[in-house]
Amino acid sequence: MPLNQPNGFSCARMLPRLAAAFLCGLLAVAALFSSDARAQTVARQWNEALLDAIRIDFPAPTVHSRNLYHSSAAMYDAWAAYDNVAQGQYFTEKHTSANVAAARQEAISYAAYRVLSERYTHAVNPVASQTRFDAVMDNLGYDKNYTSTVGNSPAAVGNRIAQHILSSTINDGSNEANGYVDNTGYQAVNTPMIVDYPSVTNPQHTPLADPNRWQPLYIESQTLQNGIPVGFNLQQYVGPHWGSVETFAMGRDGTSGPHSWSDIDPGAPPQLGGVGDAAYRANTRQLIEFSSKLDPTHGGGAEMVNLSPGANGNRPLGTHDNQGYAVNPSTGQPYADNWVKQADYGRVLAEYWADGPHRKRLPATGT
Rank of each mutant, 00 (worst) to 15 (best):
P203K: 09
H64V: 00
L307T: 15
F248V: 00
Q163S: 08
G313H: 05
V127N: 03
P309V: 00
D134Q: 06
L3K: 12
Y186G: 14
W79D: 08
T41L: 02
I54C: 08
G313R: 04
H164I: 08
V136P: 10
N159R: 13
S330T: 08
G273M: 10
F33W: 03
L32S: 11
D52M: 10
V189L: 14
A177V: 15
N159W: 11
A135G: 15
P192D: 06
T147P: 01
Y110M: 04
A311P: 00
T297M: 05
D355Q: 12
L307V: 10
A209P: 05
D295L: 12
A249I: 03
P2V: 14
G243T: 13
D172G: 08
E106G: 00
A19R: 14
D138V: 14
G313S: 12
R55L: 02
G8C: 06
T191K: 05
F22T: 14
G158M: 04
S292V: 08
Q215W: 04
S292P: 04
V200P: 10
I264K: 10
L15N: 08
F22S: 15
S153N: 03
N47V: 14
D182M: 11
Q130K: 06
W339K: 07
F9D: 09
L224D: 07
D337C: 00
L116M: 13
M250N: 12
S129T: 08
